[in-house]
């Protein structure tokens, strides 16, 4: 299967949950889906053996948007399909993909620690990357996070 066929196949697999698609680069397909459809959509890719979960990117598009973005990148050969999820900033949560993709746990723990997105159903909530004495509820990848404030807070 060449890259284009792979992307078309993925698009058909995901059509049921798609809220819009785009192709930011020639070998990529971005599919916007609702958080509630994540398990179904990711499950469809996994069950069809469409690639593997290459990374999860958590992103803060800015305080004004009132949202956070979570991007699930699946790769197969040169083709990359990204499931794009928007969650509300005041209560960001996504379900764990752990049962579908065992590796997702490491990415999800990072996501919850640095961006403050709750992972529903995550078995191990212990800290993976940030220090044990890092304050609760402070997420470094949020745009409002200021290093100087964090240092001042730590020196108190």
């Amino acid at each position: 299967m060449n890259t284009q066929t792979r992307l078309e196949f993925a698009e058909r697999l995901l059509a049921e949950w798609s809220r819009g698609t785009s192709a930011p680069q020639p070998h990529r397909l971005d599919v916007i889906i609702d958080p509630g459809d994540l398990l179904a959509a990711a499950g469809a890719l996994v069950r069809s053996d469409w690639g593997y979960l290459a990374a999860i990117t958590g992103m803060d598009p800015g305080v004004a948007t009132g949202a956070l973005w979570v991007l699930y990148h699946f790769a197969e050969g040169a083709a990359v399909v990204t499931l794009r999820i928007t969650v509300p900033r005041d209560k960001p949560a996504v379900p764990t993909l752990h049962h579908l993709v065992p590796l997702s746990e490491i990415y999800e723990r990072e996501l919850s620690e640095i961006l403050g997105v709750e992972i529903i159903g995550m078995a191990d909530k212990s800290r993976l990357f940030i220090p044990d004495d890092w304050p609760e509820g402070v997420y470094p990848m949020r745009k409002e996070f200021e290093m100087a404030d964090a240092i001042a807070e730590g020196q108190k």
């Binding site: 930011p24 680069q25 990529r28 290459a54 990374a55 990117t57 992103m59 991007l71 990148h73 790769a75 990359v80 990204t82």
Partner: peptide, 20 residues
């Protein structure tokens, strides 16, 4: 403005960059 994904083969395997 834009988003790119850049994947390369490091000695230990696939290295993945997402740049916005």
């Amino acid at each position: 403005p834009g988003e790119v994904i850049s994947r390369v083969e490091a000695p230990r395997g696939e290295l993945f960059y997402f740049i916005r």
